[in-house]
Design a protein around this nucleic acid. Structure first.
Lengths: 350, 350
DNA sequence: CTGAAAGCGCTAACAA
DNA sequence: TTGTTAGCGCTTTCAG
C-alpha cells in the first residue's frame, strides 16, 4: 500500500508538502502542487484515513442510530427511506456511514458501543425516545449531533416533519367530508411524533368546535397490530365516523378491523393516516394520508450535520421543520409513481 | 480524554503493561493485572480504536453493501431484515458496521469509495449482479468478503437460500392442489436468485412431467409493478391455473392484476411466491410462500466473516446454503407471529 | 513557499 | 514478568 512517504519521494518533495496538497493548503506553489498531484493521481494514492484521523481527529465518518423498537422495522420502510436519504448525501460529500440498529435486548450494550466509538465525526439519531440516555451521553461528550424528530433540548439540531399541523389538516379533511364524530389512534407517547400527532388532532377538534372525548382516543404504538387491536377497542366502546391514525402501518391494521366489523370505508368510517409510505400509494381502499418526506428528512439531517462539521460550527443548533401535505385518495388511485419527495418546500426556524 | 499513558502513570507501570492487560496477554502477573485493571475501571478508560488500528491494522469495522436497484428498497423489507441480522451479530462481537447503499446514479462513485476505504476489516455484499466489478475489485485487493447470494467464484464465501429446491417445492405444491397449467414470473436474470428460481421452476415441471412453455414464462424484476404488468401480459397471451412468482412483492402486483381481471384466487389461479416477507404473513388473500430466512442469512454472513477474520483464515471460502420452507396459507391465516427464523436448519457445503 | 521534527495513542519486538 | 524502544501514516508547528 502506497504511503505519503513514497509519494513524497517520487515527487521529490517532503511529505509535509504532499500533506499540504492533500489538504488543499494554500501555501503551495502552483508548480509543486501540480507536480505532486500528478504523482498522486498516477499512483492512485489514497491517504490512510486511520492515520489521518489519529492526528487530525477527523474521520469523515458519520454515525446513524436507529432504535428498532420505534421504527417497527419489520414492516415499515421508514428506515430504508431514511437510510437512503442519508447515504446519498454521505456519498456525495465523501463521507461514509456507520450504522447502529438498536435492538431492545442489546440497548445498553449498543449505546455504550456508540458512546465509546471514536471513529465518527458526528451522528444522526433517529426517533429516539424522550429523555433517551444515549442522547444525553452524546451531548455530554460533545459529539456533533442531529436528531431526526424534534426534542426539547434547544441546543441540539433536529429535523422533523410538522406533525402538529399535519394532524390539524387531517381533522380538517375529515370535517370537510362531513364527519363530526372523530376518533384517533396515537403512536407511543414516549415519542414526540406520537405526542405531537395527538396534540395536532386535539387542536383540529378545537378549531372545529368538536368535543375532545377521552374514549375516542386509543393509544397505539405505530405497529400494524396495535392499529388492529386499538380499532377493535374503539369500535367496542364508542361510536365514530372519522378516524385519524398516527401512522400508515396502524391504518392497515385499522382497515382490517373495520372490515371485519362489516363496516365500509369511507362511508361508515373515513380514515386519514400519517406518513404516506410507499405501500399506501396504491392501497385498496384508497388511503388518504398526511405525507411526511422521510427520505428528505434523512438528506437534510445529513447535510445539516456535514455543514456543522465543515464550518466547525457545532455550537449553533439548527432546528428544521419540514412541511407535511394532505394527500387525498378517497376516490381515485394515482396511476403513476411520482417522486414527489423532491418537490416539498422547506421551512427552517432559526 | 484519558490515554494509555495516564493509566500507566496512575498504576505505576509502563504503558506496555497496560497494553498487555488490555489485550489479555498472558505475560502479566496476576498482581499487576488486577492493579492495572482497577485503574482502568476506575477511570472508565477505553482505548482509542483509531490509534489501535493504526498499529494493529485492524479496525473491527465490517462493511455492508446493498445495491438499491436490486432490493426494491422502497417497499421491500429485505434490506431491513438483512441489516438487522448483521447488525446484531456485529454488536455481540464488538464490531461496528459501515453501510453503503449503492444508488444506480452513483454506482461508480460509491464503488470507488468502498474500494479505497481502509476503514473496514471485511465486507458483506448483498445480492450483487453477476460479474459485478465491485466484487472483482474486492477480490483483487484481497478484502475479506462474504456475499449474500451465491456466485460462481469458488474462492469467495457466500450465504444463500436454496432457491432451486424452494422453487421445486412451489411447483409440487401447485400440482398437489390440482393445478397443471403452470406459469411463472421471474426475477432479474442478472441475479442468481432470479436465475435459480426459474431453474427450480423448470425442474419442478420436468419432475411432474409438465411441459415447459416459453409463453408461460414472464420476466419481471422483483418489483410490485413488474408483478402487475407481467401478470397482465400472461393473462393476455396464455391460459394457466397456477402461478409461481419469484418474490412476494411481485405477488402483490400479480394479485392486483388477477382481481382486476375478475378471477379468483386460488380457485381460478393459485399462486405461490418466494420470500415470505412479513407483510405476506397476514395478507389477504392468504399467501402461500417459500420461506427464505433473510434475517438469518444476515447473521450467518456476518458470523462467517468475523470467524474468517478472527482465525486469520481468509483463504478457505465457506459456501453456505440455507434451506427454504413451504409455508401453506391457502385456507387459514396464522394468528400469532412466531419467530420462525430461529428454527431453520443449516446445510453447509465445504 | 518548503522541510525538519515532533507527536497523535497504541502495539510489538527486543532487552532486561 | 516487565520496561524500553521503535514505529504505524499522517498532520502540524516551527524554522528556514
Amino acid at each position: 500500500m502506497t504511503t505519503i512517504n513514497e509519494i513524497a519521494k517520487l515527487a521529490g518533495v517532503s511529505r509535509s508538502t504532499v500533506s499540504r496538497v492533500l489538504n488543499h493548503d494554500k501555501n503551495v506553489s502552483d508548480r509543486t502542487r501540480t507536480k505532486v498531484q500528478a504523482v498522486i493521481d498516477e499512483q492512485g494514492y489514497q491517504p490512510n484515513p486511520v492515520a489521518r484521523s489519529l492526528t487530525s481527529g477527523r474521520t469523515r465518518v458519520l454515525g446513524l442510530v436507529i432504535p428498532m423498537v420505534v421504527s417497527s422495522l419489520f414492516r415499515d420502510p421508514f428506515f430504508s427511506l431514511l437510510a437512503q436519504g442519508i447515504s446519498t448525501v454521505c456519498t456525495l460529500n465523501n463521507y461514509t456511514l456507520m450504522l447502529w440498529l438498536m435492538e431492545p435486548n442489546y440497548e445498553k450494550r449498543t449505546s455504550d458501543n456508540i458512546l465509546n466509538n471514536r471513529l465518527i465525526d458526528g451522528i444522526i439519531v433517529a426517533s429516539s425516545k424522550i429523555g433517551d440516555p444515549l442522547i444525553e451521553g452524546l451531548i455530554t461528550r460533545k459529539v456533533p449531533l442531529v436528531q431526526i424528530g424534534r426534542n426539547d433540548c434547544p441546543d441540539v439540531s433536529s429535523v422533523d416533519a410538522d406533525n402538529i399541523h399535519g394532524s390539524v389538516m387531517a381533522v380538517r379533511h375529515l370535517v370537510s367530508i362531513g364527519k363530526n364524530q372523530l376518533a384517533t389512534i396515537t403512536g407511543q407517547m414516549e415519542l414526540y411524533s406520537g405526542r405531537d400527532r395527538l396534540t395536532g388532532f386535539k387542536h383540529g377538534l378545537q378549531e372545529n368546535n368538536l368535543p375532545i372525548c377521552d374514549e375516542r382516543i386509543a393509544f397505539g404504538n405505530f405497529t400494524e397490530e396495535s392499529g388492529y387491536t386499538q380499532t377493535k377497542l374503539l369500535l367496542s366502546k364508542t361510536a365514530f365516523d372519522g378516524l385519524y391514525i398516527a401512522s400508515d402501518m396502524m391504518a392497515f391494521g385499522a382497515i382490517r378491523a373495520i372490515y371485519e366489523a362489516g363496516l365500509r370505508i369511507p362511508e361508515d368510517i373515513a380514515i386519514v393516516s400519517f406518513d404516506d409510505i410507499p405501500p399506501a400509494e396504491r392501497h385498496q381502499p384508497p388511503l388518504t394520508t398526511i405525507r411526511q418526506p422521510i427520505r428528505r428528512m434523512g438528506s437534510i439531517a445529513a447535510q445539516t450535520l456535514i455543514d456543522q462539521l465543515e464550518t466547525d460550527d457545532t455550537a449553533t443548533p439548527r432546528r428544521i421543520i419540514l412541511q407535511t401535505e394532505l394527500k387525498i385518495r378517497e376516490t381515485t388511485i394515482r396511476s403513476e409513481f411520482s417522486n414527489h419527495y423532491s418537490q416539498m418546500p422547506v421551512r427552517s426556524t432559526p
